[in-house]
Amino acid sequence: MTTSTFFIPSVNMIGAGCLAEAATTMKGYGYKHALIVTDNVLNKIGVVAKVQALLSDMSIKSAVYDGTHPNPTTINVAEGLEILRQHQSDCVISLGGGSPHDCAKGIALVAANGGDIRDYEGVDQSAKPQLPLISINTTAGTASEMTRFCIITDVDRHIKMAIVDKHVTPILSVNDPELMAGMPKGLTAATGMDALTHAVEAYVSIAANPITDACALKAVTMISQSLRHAVENGNNMEARETMAYAQFLAGMAFNNASLGYVHAMAHQLGGFYDLPHGVCNAVLLPHVQIFNAKVSAARLKDIAAAMGVDVSKMNDQQGADACIAEIRKLAKDVNIPAGLTELNVKEEDLPTLATNALKDACGFTNPIQATHEEIVAIFKAAM
């Protein structure tokens, strides 16, 4: 076994009502002025005001940047940075799902290191820790509140940059399922399938280790048991809390074992067509695993078992087939689109998307390396 390093925020709070506890912890850290990075929906429905009131009670002033786009851009990072500098904020709070978290990471990283967010594309390109980041999560999916991954769309190149950097890890993550109750069905489904993708890709990754394996398989089981319930009834707090833990476990897995071609390919679809990340992952997941089954059948069989399939009488290939069938069934049950054609992906764009996917850092840990033709073929199969 090769050596492994395990990255995770130093403090992580999970469970109904933990938001108030987080505000007290922030006071203890001695911060005076926070920049809250969020989106306009969370601002409109009053979630931002709720967080600001909690901070105010702790004598922490706050400014708000609510311009985060669903696929956060280089422009969003620059705009947020401008507000941070105006107010001389000493910490950043991200509030929302993966988009505000990633945007906030970009802002906090450039605030401390200077330059432009594009300078940090790739792995560990920054010299010093970002401004302290507290991530308050409102979705059960991306796990961006606890990872060292930051995905930013470069508006000039129309690609998503993968910034994988130990310095973008938040110092405190907060998963309060009470903040997740209002999530619409479509978002619950997409973010839940994103979490499943994290767990599956981490489990078949060439960088997997016993810690990430344990996290990934437990996440798969919990998502299989709870995602349908969370989508069906958003106020089912037991399902919401289970999904909050599951997506966190999946985050622990991929934050350390990394990902694979599902993410490398989904990033291109998101950057090129501005599509929802979780939906792209969900559509691509079975097709990439069919490709991976050539070398990962035994691991995919383990995932089928974690999803509740009786694999005792199956060989590895049958187990892999059962895993792929079960993933498709879950996606269909939560109303994920059947293919990329429904998302208006154009066949003539596939060669360009494949070229960019092969450059994405997430693909380097896929269990088997693909040619350009093979990536195009997977995209085609997913149409």
Rank of each mutant, 00 (worst) to 15 (best):
M243V: 08
G30M: 10
T74P: 06
E79I: 08
F7C: 05
G114N: 03
V164Q: 04
M314K: 10
Q125M: 11
A78C: 09
E342Y: 13
E326K: 14
H87K: 14
E201D: 09
I151S: 04
V283K: 03
Q268I: 05
N335F: 12
P132Q: 05
P170E: 04
Q88I: 13
A111D: 00
N40V: 06
Q369C: 05
M13Y: 13
D154W: 08
G96N: 02
A127I: 06
G96K: 03
I163S: 04
H277C: 14
D39Q: 11
Q318C: 10
M243K: 04
M180D: 06
I151D: 02
H277E: 12
Q289D: 13
F254I: 00
S4H: 10
R148N: 03
L358W: 05
E348C: 14
F7N: 06
V164A: 04
N292E: 11
Q52V: 05
P351W: 08
A112F: 01
N12H: 05
I378K: 01
L340A: 06
G96F: 01
A250K: 00
H287T: 11
L172G: 03
D360A: 13
Y203K: 12
P286L: 15
F6R: 08
V51S: 01
I134G: 02
R157C: 07
K27V: 00
G363H: 01
G192A: 09
K313M: 14
G28P: 02
Q52A: 06
C215V: 02
N292F: 08
F364T: 10
L133D: 02
M193F: 07
F364L: 07
L227R: 03
G339A: 15
G46M: 14
N236R: 13
K359M: 11
F149E: 00
I171A: 09
G122A: 10
L55M: 14
I375A: 04
H87A: 13
E145T: 01
L330W: 07
V231A: 09
M183W: 01
G271F: 01
N344Q: 08
K218D: 07
A219S: 13
A63E: 14
M161L: 15
V168I: 13
Q317T: 15
L95D: 02
I93S: 05
K27Q: 08
S258I: 15
M222G: 06
C91H: 10
N236G: 11
T191L: 03
M307C: 14
G192N: 09
G270N: 03
H198L: 00
E82K: 15
K32T: 13
E178I: 13
L35H: 03
A23L: 06
N12E: 11
K128G: 11
M146G: 00
F254C: 02
I290A: 11
K301Q: 15
E145M: 00
E201W: 05
A34Q: 06
R85Y: 12
